[in-house]
Amino acid sequence: MTTATRPQDPSPWLERIRPVPATRYDALNPSTRLVLGLATAVVDLVVPGLAGPLVALAVAGISALVARNVARVTRPALLVAVPLGILVVAERLLLGSRSGGAAAASPLDASLLGLEVLLRVGVLIATVLLFADTTDGRVLALDLERRGISRRLTYGTLSVLGLGPAVRARIAQITAAQRARGLRVGGGPFAAFRARLPLVFPTLVSALGDFAEGSLALESRASGRHGARTLLWWPPDRGAERALRWVLAALILAVVLLRLAGRLG
């Protein structure tokens, strides 16, 4: 439960700690961005044929345009999706049709299937990247907490999400230190991977140690206390966004149910 009144700010800092949205997409409530991303991913993955990924592509493309984030999400999405699409086309042409028969698929069928895979994977990656790039997890956690989601759950999720980057940063630090002492991590990606592999487990263990120390720090700041917590600010939410979220939630449910019932083809 949180204190839900918003009196006049008693300090000039309070006005300034609120993030200033750089684009109209950033101005959306983070929960709206989350539901929009989920709906895009569901349509992309669940609606059969090219219709689903094309609709999802349109939504993701418009979102990325509004967020002025097209280049940042497109490059990695294409980097993963294009090779996969080509692989599927090659596999269809060389190894046979989907039914498992010996005859190879026609170039048109193979190309359509490759395009479908390319679109589905690309749109999914772009949607995830767009959300991750434009949404600060800490602001989303604040918004979810205001909506009554357990604080422990949001804290826990943020901590777990933070574990990956923490391990990566520590491996980079250790690798730099080991390099200075003669460790060779050059010679291609496989050699670099092999050089870093022994560091993963001890780094994970030490990151878990930091995690325990961080929990102690949180407890010493009364994070384990039950009852009302005061929020200094929370992301704005408009009536239109609330309506949009309900519509999108209904869409997700409808698409999943229709697919399960076999009504989507």
Binding site: T3, W13, I17, P19, D136, R138, V139, A141, Y155, L158, S159, G162, D210, E213, G214, A217, L218, R221, A222, S223, R225, G227, A228, R229, T230, L231, L232
Partner: peptide, 23 residues
């Protein structure tokens, strides 16, 4: 490094975390 909560966007909110938790 382990004393910070990683839950706050600004130092101001980080320092405020304990009092906020106290309601």
């Amino acid at each position: 490094a382990t004393q910070l909560s990683h839950l706050s966007r600004t130092v101001y909110e980080e320092v405020a975390l304990g009092p906020m938790n106290l309601g």
